[in-house]
Each structure stands twice: as structure tokens, then as C-alpha cells.
Design a protein around this nucleic acid. Structure first.
Lengths: 214, 214, 214, 214
DNA sequence: GAATAAACGAGACGGTACGTCTCGTCTTATG
DNA sequence: CATAAGACGAGACGTACCGTCTCGTTTATTC
């Protein structure tokens, strides 16, 4: 048993350390304002005021309010993903989709839409947003996918990315098109059912199709 | 002796008529600027200057630059949709998807993404945008869909809207996520193939699946 | 007798004309604020608010608040100078000095001191300020001086500028040094008396000196 | 064994003593910056950086940069005044004036002008500045003046302050008015000559005047 | 033709947010 | 303790764009 005797003891830099409370206040204030209105209508001054913080502090740590909103959003996202394991891939995906639907329906979903919208002009930001957003789900979904392939529920010759696009694409499409309200549980079931006929091995596909045809 | 008493033949109002050339100049200038940069970075003043028009004229006919951009975009869209008719629904959809891909890849696509983005804060505008945009394609796609159902290529118990979501959702998803470059012809083929296994009647599905499995 | 038939009739430029009322409101507001406090403590925003004017309007017509203050000050200065004519140059100068003392004692004087102070960093501005300020008095004083020389009250071989420096220099010195309160009428009399012994022809000088000596 | 009970002579306080080198570095840095640019444009941060000192140290020992500049200026002034003694009061004053001219022409003069300017808003500071500045010269000039009165070169019934105003007022006037460059040796001679006709006893005055008239 | 009416260009305006800057205070760890 | 480092709250700066307005001008219809 060894204790690293050398390890640089995370030495504090010289000056006054960054105020963690200020950071939190800013993110919280931003979230609150985002729930109340559009990102476009939120001013840096309003965030600063609500957070009890100077405007200079905002601009010291973030280049603009878009990035503040991004951090605020992400801080709220990090611990919510769970990986369903019902024994059936289709059912697992259904659960994952319902989870996603719940998320997109929440205030956070509205915020996300605005982040995507505002980020449209900034390719780098957009990339970062989608990546960190989707990567979080991808891990969960990848687990389901892998289990499904091993179990024989899913075809092994289909690119997972394509599968994800098929499942989340329609969801996101409705979401951004403002038709999200129509995306109820029943619709989700149908969507998953149809996609699964495409991504399951032939035998099961045929059976499933027969079932639907019936 | 009477002259057509029914049709008051588009009687010109009293004053100076609206300048059609100004209208065109404005839309053209807006399009040019949109190709060069982001909608966010385009100012009403820049449009007016480039169009050789007064700012007041802009605001007389449009409520804000978002609506100008919308009109400019739409003016360029109106006559491009064609309805493929190859005898096979799958092939028809493949053609339609490639058409859509070409469109989204063009400068107009970039413009569209920005319109969607900016419209995010304005529900009414967003609705109008998506509707008039999708309706244009919907007509075409509906024709394909109808033919497919009649021909027996497509299941009759699937909601067309769901079908469109399945086809265009992944496309739009990649588009907005900035992964559109990866949406090449091969990917499009695969996507359509998978979706079709879900939306075709069981017999054909089983055959197709067997074909792929082989 | 002819009337220029061509003369361009002071054609109004195109566009909305500059608001004269805004100009006046700005200058008045600035003056009011200057009387109440230091130029340093006056913000562009305060001027704009008090004048019921946008900040942009300030910056459209003046490069910074220093120049606004200058214009405000000058607008209030233009018509106050009178040229005394008592028959005696010494008496005339005494009147002129008392006039200047009254001015420097007023709120306008306080404003002037601040303008000089703030202008210290901007050589061009400083030059312009002193010039337009002193030129106004110089005209008056030059008249007195010329009359004095013609009348034989003043030596003709002394540079007028030097004479002005001798008369106004001590005044301004006390003014800027904050000892202005001590510059009462009696002191003014003494000062003028002493200077006049230096700038009058010898005979009168001797007589005057003898008078004082007595 | 005895402990001196009387003189705990300048007992060192506890803790780390104030760094004398820091003090000097700060004043020197301030002087350097003052020579390079305007006091207005110098930031506390710049002084601290150049002096290799923390900003907190500045504010611990001075209330603001104006007072730092004052101390820096004064430290450079203290030992330069000499009292000419040529046997003639007029000549002595001429020397003193040339001395003053040299000073005002130097970088220190520029600094002084800025101190006066900045101090305009702070009556107390202004007072202190002028007092400590003028008192330094006053001592020297008072000596000349006293000698002159004793010697009979100067009238005894003229207030010395008034005399100083007459001599230094025009100088300072030109200095602050930005016309200082014109204040060459010849002008200084003339100025002193004129003033002296006002402040010398009648006999000499008459003689001098006659001399000038000739 | 003159009168009427609306649209037009130019551009000044009030409003408001931006992102930057400096001030003077504070909170750490170091000497 | 005094210090160096540097984050912080406060708040003014000057810029930019918005959408409105006030002009004088132009282009049409109506009398």
C-alpha cells in the first residue's frame, strides 16, 4: 500500500481565488431567467444584477451570455440520465425516448432549443453544444444498443449513429418544428415500433410485422 | 352600356404606388447578405444601403428583418420542388431525399437554419416558417406516399406525418446538429432502406430483410 | 443695387433636420449640472437623462462631455462683455477687472476653472478654450488700450499682450490658486495702481508715484 | 542589568516593517509615467505594475493616485530652490523668474499643471498643493523682498503677496494658457522691468522710467 | 394643369444593450 | 504584520443597432 508522497498538493495559485459562490449564483440566475423568458431578451446586466455580481465578473469568465447559458444548462443536465434495462431492446429504447421526451418538454428543453438557435451562428459553439448534449445520451443509448446486438435483438450490421438518428431525429425534428406537443406516448410507441422493424434481424422483423399487420 | 360591374378591376389606390423595384432590391440585397454572413450580424441599415432604399421603406412593409429574410428566402424557394415518379416508392423517396439534401447543402439551407434559429423566440413565426416550408415538400411527398399506398408499396395504416418525420427527421437532425456533411448519398440509401423496412407491408418487409440479412 | 439672383437659398439638407431644441436642452442640462457639481462627476448619461435626449445624440454632435461643457459655457458667455469708457484708462481697466472678477466669482467662473483643468490633458482643446475665452475680452481690452495710447495715458512701446498678462495674470493666478476670495475691490485697485505705474509714460508715473509715496 | 526606562527610541512596531523600497519604487514609477503621459490616463494598475508592487499597497498608504502623484512630484522638488543675491532686487527677481521658468518648462512643470488641473475638483487638495508649492518659493522670494525693502530697492508699503502675484501671476497665466513657449528671457526682462516701475520707490521709478522713455 | 395622396430618400432621434475599463476593496497565501 | 497576486462590486464609458420620426421629393390619380 503506497501513498503518493510527491503528488503536487493541488497548490492554490497566489491571489484571491475565484469565488465559487459567484459562479453558482451566476449560473442559477441565468437558469431562472431562462425559464422566465427568451435568451435573446436576457441581458448581461440582468444576470449580473440577479446574481448580485458585477458585469465584469461575467465577462472575466465567459466570453458572452451564450456561453453562460450553456454552462448553466449543462450544470443542470449532468446527473439525470439513467440506462433502462428491461430485457427488451425495444422497450429499453421506448423508455429512453420517454425520458428524452420528458426532458425536452421541460423548461430545460425550451432552454436547449434556444441554445441551439443562438448557437446557429457560431459553428464551434454549436458543435460543442450538440456534442456534449448528445454524448451524454449516447453513452446510455450505446449500452442499450450493445446489449441489443449481443442479445440478438438488433442487427449487427447497422451503424449505431444511424440508429440514433432514426430514433432521436424525428423527436428533435418535431421539437424544433414546434410540433412537440403532438409527441405523446402513443406516438412514441408507434415510432419505436416502426424503426424497430427496420433495425431488428429478419426473423423477428417478420414476426413483428405480422403482428402489426394483424 | 356597362362595363364589368362585378370585378372592380384591382383599382389602383390614389397615391404613388408601391415601388416593385424597391421590393425586389430589398429581397435580393437580403439574400446576398445572408449568403455572406449570419442573419444576426446583418443590420437593417446594411440591407437598406445595399438595396439603395430608405430604412423607413423596410419598416413600412415588414415588421422586422426576420420577416424580410423570410420573404427573401421564400421567393427563392417557390419553384424548385419536383415529384419523382420512378415506379418504386422507395426509389421515389430516395430521390426526394437527395433533392432535400441538395437544398439543405446549398446557401439556402444555411439561410433556413438561421431562420429556424431566429424564429425560435417567436412561436408564430416559427410555425409559419415550418409550415410553409414543409407544406411545399409535403405536397410532393404526399403524392409519392399516396401512390405507394395504392400500389401496395407502403402500409396503409401508418400516419403519413409519422412517415415524413422518419424520413426528414434524421436529415434535419444532422442538419441542425452540424453533422450534415456526413449525410452523403450512401448514408441516405441506408437510411431509406431501414425506414422502408418499417413502413412497407410485411411480405415485402420480410423479403427485403432477408435480402439484407443475406 | 443688385440682388444676387443666383445665391443658393441656404438649401436645407435632405433628411430630418437636427433638432434645435435637443441642442438647447443638452446645453442647458449641462450648465445646470455644472453649477451643481464638478465636471468630473457629471456623466454623459446624466446629461442625456436631464435633457430628455438619447446618449447617442450627445455623441453624434460632440466627441465627449468636455466639448459639450465647452459649448454650454460659451453659449452663456457670448453677450456679456461691455467696454467701459470713463475717460481714464486706469479707471477703464479697473472697471474691466471688476467685470472679470464678477465673472470669475460666478458659477460660470467655477465652470471655467473646471474646463481649464480638464482641458489640461488636451492641448488643442486647451488652446481653443483659452483663445475663445480671452479673445472675447481681448477685443474689449484692446479698445481700452488703444484709446489709452492715443490719449497718452499709456506708453506706446509696451506690447499689449504683456499688459494684459500683467493685469489678468495675477487675477487668474489667484483664481486658479483658490485664493480668489481675497481678490476684493480694494486689492483690485492696488493691483491696477501698481501696474499702471509700470505702463504709463514717465511724467505721469512720477506724479502718481509721488502721490502714493506721500 | 538595566533596561533603559526612558527612551524606547523609535521602537519598531511588530510585524513586517513597511517596505521603504516599495515606497520609492512607487514614486519613481509614478514620475516616469507622468513624464510619459497625462495623469488622467495613468491607472493605479499601471503604477503598481511598473513599481512591481501590489495595488493594495498603493491604497494602503495613499488614498488615491492624485496623492501619489503629489508625493512623487514633491519628492522631486524639495532641494532645487536657491536664493539669488546679486545686490540688485530687480536682478535677483529676474534670476528667480528664470529659475521658475526653467522649472515650469521641465517635465515637472507639465506634471504640476496636471496636478493643479486634477486638484480643481478637490478644494482641500488644491489648497495643499498650491501652498506647499508656493511656500517653497515664497521663502526664497521673501528673502529677496526683505533685502530689497531694507536696501531701499523696494517700496515698503506694498504687500509682498501682491508683489508675488504681479511677478508670478503673468508667468503662471501664460503657463496654464499654453502660451508658455513665448515666455523667453527677453519677455521675462520686460515683465520684471515693468513691474519694478510699479513697486520701486518714486525716485528710482522716475529715473528708471526716464531711462526707458529715452 | 393644379390639387391631392401615398411612397420614397435621407438621416436625426429616443431607447437600450453591449463589452470594456478603471476604481478602490476584498481575500488568499507568502515573506 | 506587510506584502504580491489577483478576483471582486460598482458603475461610467463610447459604440452599435433598433424601430420611429420628420423632413423635402417623387410619382401617380383625380378634379
Amino acid at each position: 500500500m503506497t501513498i503518493d508522497p510527491v503528488s503536487p498538493p493541488a497548490k492554490r495559485p497566489r491571489g484571491r481565488p475565484r469565488s465559487e459562490s459567484a459562479r453558482e449564483q451566476i449560473l442559477q440566475a441565468t437558469l431562472d431567467l431562462l425559464e422566465a423568458g427568451n435568451l435573446r431578451d436576457i441581458t448581461a446586466e440582468a444576470i449580473a444584477r440577479k446574481a448580485g455580481v458585477s458585469k465584469a465578473t461575467l465577462y472575466k469568465w465567459w466570453p458572452n451570455k451564450l456561453h453562460i447559458a450553456f454552462d448553466a444548462f449543462m450544470a443542470r443536465m449532468s446527473d439525470e440520465i439513467v440506462v433502462p434495462d428491461t430485457g427488451s431492446s425495444e422497450h429499453d429504447f421506448l423508455m429512453a425516448m420517454r425520458d428524452a421526451m420528458a426532458f425536452y418538454s421541460s423548461a430545460a428543453g425550451r432552454t436547449l432549443a434556444q441554445l441551439i438557435a443562438e448557437g446557429q451562428g457560431d459553428e464551434t459553439f454549436n458543435q460543442a453544444l450538440l456534442e456534449s448534449l448528445i454524448n451524454q445520451r449516447r453513452e446510455a443509448v450505446a449500452t442499450i444498443w450493445r446489449r441489443g446486438v449481443e442479445r440478438g435483438d438488433l442487427r449487427s450490421d447497422i451503424d449505431m449513429q444511424m440508429g440514433l438518428d432514426l430514433i432521436y431525429g424525428p423527436l428533435m425534428f418535431r421539437f424544433l418544428a414546434g410540433r412537440f406537443h403532438s409527441m405523446n406516448a402513443e406516438e412514441a410507441d408507434k415510432l419505436i415500433a416502426i424503426v424497430f422493424r427496420g433495425i431488428t434481424p429478419v426473423r423477428q422483423t417478420a414476426e413483428a410485422a405480422a403482428l402489426i399487420d394483424a
